[in-house]
Computed example of a mutant assay.
Amino acid sequence: MSAGAPRLVLATHNQGKLRELRDLLRGQVQGLDVDTQVVDAAAVGGPDVVEDGVSFAENSLLKARAVSAATGLVAIADDSGLAVDVLGGAPGIFSARWAGRHGDDQANLNLLLAQLSDVRDEHRGAAFVCAAALVAPAPDGGDPFEHVEYGELKGTLLREPRGEGGFGYDPILLPEGLDRSCAELSREEKNAISHRGHAFRALLPAIVRALS
């Protein structure tokens, strides 16, 4: 395998998630050039996967399995979303399509704010939740190696968006102990506390094992 050949594929087309993973892995795996060898699904012709699981973990495994099987590479996938206390954990696995169309961040955010407009500040607790899955092909053609880790970022929901960074619901979640929304944090600050950061860091030993 050439030095720049992909070794790890993130089962997403979201460039924000790919940047986060590359930042987290930079310098962590010996001999891994994250800028050329950690790629998204589009770079290796990974399939689109229907996320019809009923949990974050199930959806992340569905994506990682499909992309690893199609490419023969170690694959990582995450499924994440916003769990709002007064909505019983919703939007949850439906976070990316809460307003009806997948990936319309502004519509999703606007609908959620409208739904919570009468909820008092003390009841606006929420958390970003992430399940990150790794699937690595077995060298002998046997069952693949699979591993799932979880991460969470607790906070409260603002009444209007703040900040220009991040994506999704970042502009309206105020992390516990901070006075800035997730969208007002630098990439480094967000990665240090984010649900995805926690999940991917917990997954790091499995990534090292799979790439060794």
Rank of each mutant, 00 (worst) to 15 (best):
G155D: 00
D85C: 00
D35Q: 08
I76V: 13
L204K: 01
G141D: 10
A199E: 08
D79Y: 13
E58T: 11
T71M: 08
R180P: 07
R124T: 02
A69C: 05
C130A: 11
F94E: 14
G177R: 03
V148I: 10
A90G: 15
E164P: 05
L158D: 12
T36V: 03
Q115L: 15
L62V: 13
G163A: 13
P161T: 08
A114K: 13
I93W: 14
Y169E: 13
V148G: 01
G16Q: 01
C130S: 14
E188T: 14
D143L: 11
A202H: 04
D143V: 13
S181E: 10
K17G: 15
G125P: 00
D79R: 12
G89W: 10
P144H: 07
I193H: 11
I93E: 12
A199M: 12
L61I: 07
L82C: 13
E188L: 14
V44N: 04
G27S: 13
N110Y: 00
H195E: 08
R97V: 06
D33F: 05
V119C: 02
R196V: 14
Q30L: 09
D104I: 00
S60H: 11
A57W: 06
H147A: 02
R22Q: 14
L87F: 11
H147Q: 07
V44D: 03
G163L: 13
G177C: 02
G151S: 12
F94M: 13
H147M: 04
V119Q: 03
I193P: 07
A83D: 12
L204M: 07
P137R: 08
S95W: 12
I76F: 06
F128C: 15
L204R: 00
F56P: 06
D179C: 12
L111H: 09
A136T: 00
E189I: 05
R97H: 10
S117F: 10
L87W: 14
R101C: 00
G31I: 15
I76W: 02
F128G: 07
P139T: 11
G16R: 00
I172F: 11
G168S: 08
S95T: 14
E164Y: 04
G151W: 05
D121Y: 04
A210G: 09
G88R: 02
P137T: 07
T71W: 06
V38Y: 02
S95V: 12
Q37G: 01
R180M: 07
D23K: 00
A90F: 09
G168N: 05
T12M: 14
H123C: 05
V148A: 04
Q106N: 06
G103K: 01
F145T: 10
L24S: 01
S2G: 06
L25Y: 02
